[in-house]
Structures are given as C-alpha cells and as structure tokens.
Amino acid sequence: MMYSYYPGCTLKTKAQDLERFALISAQVLGIELAEQQDWQCCGAVYPLAEDEIAGKLSAVRSLAAAHSKGEKLITLCAACHHVIKRVNADMYSNEFVRKRVNNYLQLPKNYNGEAKVLHYLELLRDDVGFSKLAEQVRMPLTGRKIGAYYGCLLLRPSNVMNFDDAENPSILEDFITALGATAVKYPFRTECCGGYLTVNDQEANEMAANIINSAIGLEVEEILTACPLCKYNLEKELGTNTKVRIVYFTELLAEALAIK
C-alpha cells in the first residue's frame, strides 16, 4: 500500500537514525512510503492560541497534498505527528481556523480536514498488524528488557490524538512484544521529559530523572522512544550512566528484522 510520508526537520539532521531505520524496515514490510515533495517544517509545537493561523499553514499544505493523492499521511517524529494531527482536527471541526487557512492558502480545492494522519506506530498496529509484524521478525530480541517511553505528544490530548488510552497505553508494549523482547511497564512511562523547558532552564532536569529512575527501578535495559526531543532530554540527564540506553523504536524494529 502506498502512503504519503512527512519526515520533518529533525529527522534529516540530528535524528537521522529514527528515519533511516524506519525507511529500510518499511521496505522489508512491504510498506511504500513516498516522501512528500516540498514539505515544510511543522513548527515543532502546535499553536495553542485560538488566533494563531500562520503556524498551522505548513501542516495544512502537507495534509492537503496527501489528501489530493488519496493517501494516508504517515509521520514518524512524535512532535510533527502532534502538530499535524491537531491541525487536521482544527481543519475538520474549527470553522474559524478552516475559513482563515483556506482563505490564505488558496489551494486548488478547499481543505476541510479529510486526510487521515497515522503515526508510523499506528501504521504498524492498524494497517500491518502486530501479529503480521511478529511473523516478519528474523532476529527476535528475546530476553531484552525494554521499557516503552510514550512521552506526551503522541497520547495527549486523547480526544484529538486518539492514539491510545492516554493513562494506560499499550501500543509500544505490544510493539516490543511483537519484536520478541520483554516489555516492562514502569510507572513514569507517560510522564513528560521536560520537553522544550531546557531552553528556559538549564538546571537539573528532575522530570527526565524521574523517568529514568522509574525505568531503572524495574531493571529496564533499554528505553524506547519515538521523539528526538525526548531522546535528547533523557540522554542528557543520563550523562555517563550506562545502566540504560535510550533508543528509537525504529532502530529496534530494524534490528529485529535483521536489517540494521
């Protein structure tokens, strides 16, 4: 099946691993991801103010492009996914935003939130199926204790993101299990890593520390993430501590498919 694919800036620079492993895994799994032409930066954060329109335009360009091709739009970075998914919801149900954005963009056809946005993980769960994925695993990660780290942006607010149960999610654990590893649910797996706060406050990041300690407390060896910013914050907090490794979910996917 053919999909439109939105990579995002960070994936082309500091988080190349997240993308590289995703793309080679997709090939093995028979998923055709076509990178969108002329995609633009999503803006990294969803503009929360009612009167901010400009910050939503680039997301709409990608959404409209995918829709015009009749393809689902696949995202990989948690932040990009959050922005695009929420803007899409605005275009679908917020008359004020829809009108202004369409007036500004003057697309060949007005866009009204029709496109379907899927995160790569949702694609694996809903379109491929984790049981099908498990069948494709060549090198099961047997015995490895892996803790999923969800962070904020994929889950919340759940009425828009519709990704999983915001308080008790399971998609990443199901993914880990499909790869043959042992999924460890630790209490802080859906807490915030501190996000962009590093810009405002360079002092110790107790939010990231709580997550790491919670995972180490249950003997997690690898923490799985879908977000470059989470990975950065957690690794920065980890420093030289080698008890646990922060890893992109796509890296483990490629490893289990024996193509890393």
Binding site: T13, A15, V45
Partner: peptide, 19 residues
C-alpha cells in the same frame, strides 16, 4: 549559550515558538 552538538532542531524551534 545553550546549544550542544546533540540538541535537535526541534528544541530551538519549540523554544522560539514558546518564548
């Protein structure tokens, strides 16, 4: 003052958007 070689672009873009 805050940048390091691992910092993803996302941080700076978010920072400018928020602050």
């Amino acid at each position: 003052g805050i940048i390091d070689d691992k910092m993803p672009q996302q941080v700076l873009v978010s920072g400018f958007r928020k602050y």
